[in-house]
Structures are given as C-alpha cells and as structure tokens.
Amino acid sequence: MKPLSKPIFANMPGGFIYSVVIMALLSGCGASVANTETKQPVTALPVLNISTVPATTYREYTATLEGKVNVEIRPQVEGVLDKIYVDEGAFVKAGQPLFKIHDRPYEEQLSNANATLQAAQANMQKAQLEVDRLTPLVQNNVVAEVQLKTAQSVYQSAKASVAQAQAMVGSARINLGFTQINAPVSGYIGRIPYKAGSLVGRAETQPLTLLSDVNEVYAYFAMSETDFLQFKNETAGNTIADKVKQMPPVDLVLSDNSVYPQKGKIETMQGQFDKNIGTISFRATFPNAAGLLRSGNTGKIRIPEEFAAALVVPQSATFELQDKVFVFVVADSNKVASKPITVAGKSGAYYFVEKGVKAGDRIVYTGLDRLQDGAVITPQPMSMDSLLKVKPL
C-alpha cells in the first residue's frame, strides 16, 4: 500500500484544525468537572426533630423604682441651719431628729406672745370686775342700765383679746417646734445640699433632703396599646381590676441583667393612656427588707407566660436574612430547604415558633453556613429531649 505523502490535515484549513482542538479540550474539561461533582462528598450534619414541650416565655418592660414613701424634708420656718444630725445615705427611724434651725428668735416670739396673753387676761379680769360691780347697782336702780351694758361690751372685747393672744401663743409654739425637724417615716436619707450655717426657709426650691421608705419599692412600667389589649384578652377576670389581680408574680431584672431574688406583684394601673406616647402605666410592688433596692434604680419587669405545649427551636439552628428568621428543613430525600419562621417569643437559647414549621419536622442544628437550598446532607439524628438536658429552657 502506498504511504500517504502528506498528513491527513495537510489540505484542511487552519481554522478548522484549531476548532477541533478547542472542542476536544472543552470536552475534556467538562468531563473533569462532572467527575468532580460526582465525587464531591455529602456533608454529615446533626439534624433535630422539633417537638412541643411545656415552656415559659417572658414579656419585658423597662421600669423605674421608687420607695413606697418618698418624702421631701422642707423647713416650715425660716432661719439659720444650726445642726445636721444625720449623714447622706443613713437609715433613720420615724421621729428621729434630722435638722435643727436656730431657735432663739422663735423662743423670743413665744415669750412675747405669752406676755401679750397675760396682759389680755388681766384686762379681761378687770372688765369682769366692772361688770360684777355694776350688776347689783343696776338691779337696785342706782345706776343706769346703759353703764352695765357698756361694761359687758368691754368684757367681751377683753375676752376676744385673750383668745387672740392664746392663738398667737399657739402659733409661736408651733413655729418653735418647727425648728426641730424629725423624720416623718423610717427610711434612707438622700442628698443634703445645705450645710450648717446656711439660711433656709419655705421659699427655697431645694428640700433639705429626700427621705425614702424602701421597705417596699414600687416598680413603674408602661405597656403599649397592643400589649394592653393582649393582656385584656388573655387574662382571666370580668373587670380590669380582676385581671390585674390574676396576673402572675413578676421578676425584676436589674441593670446588670441579674434577677432580683424576690418576686413582685402587679397591684394597680393608671386609669387612662398617655395620649402623647400611647402607653398605660402599671405598678408592681417588691419587698425590700434588706434594702438592696433604692429609689431611682432602673431595671426591667419580666412577666411570665406559661405554655402547655410550645414549639421550640434552638436559636443556633436559625439564621437571619433581611430581618427574617430562617431554618433549614430536611426533606425525605435529605435535601435541605430554607424556610422562614414566625417567632412568638424566646427563652434563653430557644425561640418559640408560631408559624413556619410544625412538630415532627426535621431541621439542621449546626453547620448552616455550609448549606444552600437543594444541598443533600447525611443526617445525624438528635432528640430535643437530649438537647434540653444540656441547654434547658
């Protein structure tokens, strides 16, 4: 057989040769990619069967604390502050001396009022003697009756002067008593802006101090109109007052996120909404025998809400996208698909789910950052009971 004198592609156009070579290369690359996808390992991830469990969720409201009694201690008379018997922050009992205003001017006023009273009493006695003298003379027709009536008028005037002088003595005695300022209730002394030697009086804008009775404290918080309607619709009772009484004991979460050890009770609410901000105020009372709480503290009131069967999802099994919360649900074919859920509340590391998933659904517990819709995984089953033992509600 005669050998070919030229290669088979010798008479072909150059462009055709390049096209054939490129197609062969692309074909080889496609085969390589397909093989890679086929050989990609399936991810093994923990999968949780979600279920309903008894649970407690909480509604929280910002609160401010006040002592059961907050009394502004103000002077009732003007004078120089002579003595300060207590220090800021001290605990005092009802009736204990707090301040002393220089009392010498008020002692002199009392002495003057007593002297005036004595003079008035002397005049009244003199007028009485004149009446007593004229009475038999008039009866015997020795003097005219008009003289007796005049004497009786003088006596009545003198008697009125005595009453007026007695009132002046009482007023002076009260003012003298006001120079000694005692604690009206037991409690803690607040800031004392004045020092000994300061001139104080009723016209001063600042009180001498603020005395707080904090054996019990009031926590004031406000509900929005939506929360109030929820409270009204879900709480047992025929009237609002009955519903307030039926509310469960509440917790006080302090500013460091610690929980005050004693429970409080919601006792009352305001009669109307604040039309400017659309809220209505409630008052809860907490015992405070140890004095751990003070007026001016802030915190949060936490109202519990019991669920006999709540659908619980760990927060670690969720992710957020555009202000929505999602989970990866595992289908029968072990393919995952992201689904949004509606969160009704939360407790600790768990969400309470209202919509989006149901009891018995399987969701991916961890490794969400490695997933996308349609991915196939190898489920590693885990139970909600075992998870709750490690991370309780």
Rank of each mutant, 00 (worst) to 15 (best):
L4H: 12
L4N: 06
K6Y: 14
A10Q: 07
S19E: 00
I22W: 07
G28T: 12
A31R: 12
L45M: 10
L45S: 01
I50Y: 05
A55T: 10
R59E: 11
R74V: 08
Y85D: 02
D87W: 13
G89S: 08
K93F: 09
A94Q: 01
F99N: 02
P105T: 02
A115Y: 09
L117C: 11
Q118N: 12
A127Q: 10
T135K: 15
V138Y: 03
V138E: 04
Q139H: 13
L148T: 00
V154W: 00
Y155N: 04
Y155S: 01
S161N: 15
L176V: 04
A183K: 07
G187K: 12
Y194D: 00
S198M: 03
T205S: 10
A222Q: 08
M223K: 06
L229T: 03
K232M: 14
N233C: 06
T235D: 07
A241M: 14
K245E: 10
M247F: 05
P249I: 11
V259W: 02
Q262M: 10
G271K: 12
Q272E: 14
A284I: 00
F286W: 01
N288S: 06
N288G: 05
S295K: 04
G299H: 02
A308Y: 13
P314R: 01
Q322F: 13
F326E: 00
S338I: 05
V343K: 00
G345F: 02
S347M: 09
A349D: 15
V353P: 00
A359Y: 03
G367C: 11
D373A: 14
A375L: 11
P379E: 03
S383R: 14
D385L: 07
L387Q: 01
